[in-house]
Nucleic acid binder design. Structure first.
Length: 217
DNA sequence: ACATTAAGTGATT
DNA sequence: AATCACTTAATGT
């Protein structure tokens, strides 16, 4: 498995070298493994056990709060260099996931078994900072998400959503239907259609069937 | 040409 | 902002 280890080390150096100390990288290479997911796959569902933590190398994951099937809300996206610290805490407590993670773009990540990451917290300062930082960042994004629900109007939420989406895709041309947007924002298709038309007329967006181009960013 | 899926719209709550 | 009921447009077979 030397080839695999070499690959992992190379990827780690590429994305996490500035964050992690060398010894920690050595350990990750030892216990971690590389895995890939295709867009649209569900990585983790609500209620499932978490056995590994992902260190995302490329692509993106959409984190969703799901009340029941068909009633869901997108909280935020994870991309390269991110991990899900929420899932990490879940792991320590051996609880089941409270979120659903769906792969947004083809994703590649190094997976680290839960059993070890706890030790790393006390062993490696860089790991501790990484986790705390990640947790903090997720917290901020979640508060933003709550703010969105509480204070922002639907058209503002829509614009933010499209902006975020364009950012993680590294492309302002989004291939998406009104229905999919409505699902992510937990609203109805009709509402999205009307708001999108408004934004289109305001020149903030250019939309055609199955496509939305974000102009105002 | 026909069926299916996506998008647009007026009226109502 | 949501829902209904319907129309129109785009796309696949």
């Amino acid at each position: 498995m030397k080839v695999q280890e070499k690959i992992i080390r190379k990827k780690l150096d590429e994305y996490f070298a500035t964050i992690f100390e060398k010894k920690l990288i050595d350990e990750i290479v030892e216990v971690g493994f590389l895995d890939k997911f295709k867009a649209g796959e569900t990585m983790i569902d609500v209620g499932e056990d978490m056995t590994h933590i992902p260190l995302i190398l490329s692509g993106a994951v959409k984190i969703i709060r799901q009340e029941k099937v068909g009633d869901e809300l997108v909280l935020y996206f994870l991309e390269k260099g991110d991990t899900c610290a929420i899932s990490f805490i879940n792991c320590i407590n051996r609880k089941k996931s409270i979120f659903k993670g769906v792969v947004e773009n083809d994703m590649e990540a190094i997976f680290v078994p839960v059993s070890i990451i706890d030790d790393w917290l006390t062993k490696y300062k860089t790991w501790r900072y990484f986790i705390i930082d990640s947790y903090h960042f997720r917290m901020i994004e979640m508060v933003e998400s709550i703010d969105g629900l509480a204070f922002m109007k639907m058209n503002e939420r829509l614009l933010k959503y499209l902006g975020d989406k364009a950012k993680i895709n590294h492309n302002v041309n989004l291939e998406i239907t009104h229905q999919q947007i409505a699902d992510d924002l937990n609203t109805s298709r009709v509402v999205i259609t009307r708001l999108l038309k408004q934004l289109h007329n305001d020149g903030k967006v250019y939309s055609t069937r199955n496509k939305v181009k974000v102009l105002d960013i």
